[in-house]
């Protein structure tokens, strides 16, 4: 086995199947943005520090700059584009971010939302400390974080009221 430079991969993104040939050195983030065309996933540092590229892979938050696209073969992927229940609608997390002014430039927001989504899956009623710990892997240079934490708190309350819809 001398290895390949390209591979065909197939995965599901936001419920839709995608299949294509990728260079083995392409990150999942690059393939999502450039091949699949979903540019909501943002790339900041591209070496696993900033968290902007966080997506859900098989239900878990993952830094998509630290995962090769070939490794996502067969996976279920959720990106920020898949959060809202439909066009012209927002996910409760997105609405809470809006209400609380939890973003300014918006660059980190997709990663924040996906991480918060994973947190609420595991801890539907998180403490403030849990929110802070989970979001510590996502860097924001605008907000000072307080409004992001408050937005996640509000979303948790709203989602619990809606029977935990995620």
């Amino acid at each position: 086995m001398n290895g390949e430079a390209e591979r065909t991969v197939a995965f599901t993104v936001n419920g839709s199947p995608w299949r294509g040939t990728v260079e083995v050195r392409q990150s999942l983030a690059d393939v999502l943005r450039e091949a699949v065309g979903l540019t909501g996933t943002h790339l900041g540092c591209e070496h696993g520090v900033c968290g902007a590229c966080t997506v859900l892979v098989d239900g878990r938050p993952v830094r998509s700059c630290l995962m090769l696209a070939v490794q996502a073969d067969g996976a279920q992927i959720l990106t920020v584009e898949g959060l809202a229940p439909g066009p012209d609608q927002l996910h409760p997390l997105q609405e809470a971010f809006w209400n609380h002014h939890a973003l300014q430039c918006g660059f980190c927001t997709p990663g924040m939302l996906m991480t918060a989504w994973a947190l609420l899956q595991e801890h539907p009623q998180p403490t403030r400390a849990e929110i802070q710990t989970w979001l510590s892997g996502n860097i924001c240079r605008c907000t000072g974080y307080q409004n992001i934490v408050e937005a996640v708190e509000e979303a948790a309350v709203r989602m619990a009221g809606e029977g935990g819809r995620a």
Binding site: N2, G3, R25, S27, V70
Partner: peptide, 12 residues
């Protein structure tokens, strides 16, 4: 694309 080119093997 960040990494230098490499070949990839995925043994089972």
């Amino acid at each position: 694309m960040k990494p230098a080119p490499f070949r990839y093997a995925a043994p089972r």
